[in-house]
Simulated scan of single mutants.
Amino acid sequence: MTKLAELVHDQLLQLNNTQTRKFSLPNIEPTAPVPVTSKNSYPLVGTATLELAPSTLHEQIQQFANLALCAGYQKVQLLPLFLLPGVHVMEDIPAEAALAQANLGDAIVLNLQPHLGAHPGLGRMLAKQLSLVETEAKILFAHGSRRAGGNEPVEMLAEQLGAIAAYWLIPPTLEEQVIALADAGNQQITIVPYFLFSGGITDAMAQMVTRLQEQFPQLQLRLSESIAVTVELAKLVLDVGN
């Protein structure tokens, strides 16, 4: 698996408490989520991964929840850093969270929040970025999901951005959509990766765009950056947690 897959399959764990307390971290296993502590005005934050981790997601959640208990917290917010409501968001993560809650009992409450892609501010953020780009047509290029209804948010977002959707996993493919736009008379086409972070897929995407540019020299293909980590994105994540 690529680094991108590891990051996309991350889940942010945010501790909620009425007051942030100073405490000493107990000894935890090397496989436990890494807590990130900050000043008193901020909550305790850690990460857990659905894949590519030595322990299962529910075990990572339990370890972090136990850390929270030692710090005097009573609730943990689970914030899925996923863009699409696919199998991971709709089935895998809820099952792992439920298993963790069952093992923890009533000692602490786990609150599973909506995935990041459900936040309406994400579309506004992308629209703001694309407003600075001069182009005749846009393609929103997403991973795609085989789950029924899993790609509807991409189609809605593409319409909001004045773009058409293409997918890595399922049709319509990027090449098919480039050809469709070219046949409609467009020569300047901007491809917008709907991925949180750069990684193996976005690297392969860049190679794909290079091949398409060689195949269609009459077109001007531009590949924009992935969403990436910004202050604005961090604010959206915190807003989901609140």
Results as ranks from 00 to 15, higher is better:
1 M>W: 01
6 E>D: 06
6 E>M: 04
8 V>Q: 14
28 I>C: 08
31 T>C: 09
31 T>W: 14
33 P>R: 06
34 V>M: 07
39 K>Q: 07
44 L>C: 08
49 T>Y: 13
49 T>H: 15
51 E>M: 00
53 A>W: 07
54 P>T: 04
56 T>E: 14
57 L>E: 00
63 Q>R: 13
65 A>I: 06
65 A>V: 04
70 C>T: 11
73 Y>I: 02
84 L>N: 01
87 V>N: 10
92 D>V: 13
92 D>M: 13
101 Q>M: 01
102 A>S: 07
108 I>L: 15
109 V>K: 15
111 N>P: 00
113 Q>K: 15
115 H>Q: 13
117 G>N: 05
117 G>A: 04
117 G>H: 03
120 P>H: 05
120 P>E: 06
123 G>P: 08
124 R>Y: 03
126 L>T: 07
127 A>I: 01
135 T>Y: 01
136 E>Q: 15
143 H>P: 13
146 R>G: 01
149 G>S: 06
149 G>Q: 07
155 E>K: 15
157 L>V: 01
161 L>Y: 13
161 L>I: 08
165 A>T: 13
165 A>W: 05
170 I>S: 00
172 P>K: 08
172 P>Q: 10
172 P>G: 11
174 L>M: 03
177 Q>N: 12
179 I>A: 08
180 A>N: 10
182 A>F: 02
186 N>L: 11
191 I>Y: 12
195 F>Y: 12
204 A>D: 15
204 A>I: 00
207 Q>T: 10
208 M>Y: 07
210 T>F: 04
215 Q>S: 11
219 L>W: 10
220 Q>P: 00
220 Q>V: 12
221 L>V: 09
233 L>A: 07
233 L>F: 12
234 A>K: 12
238 L>H: 13
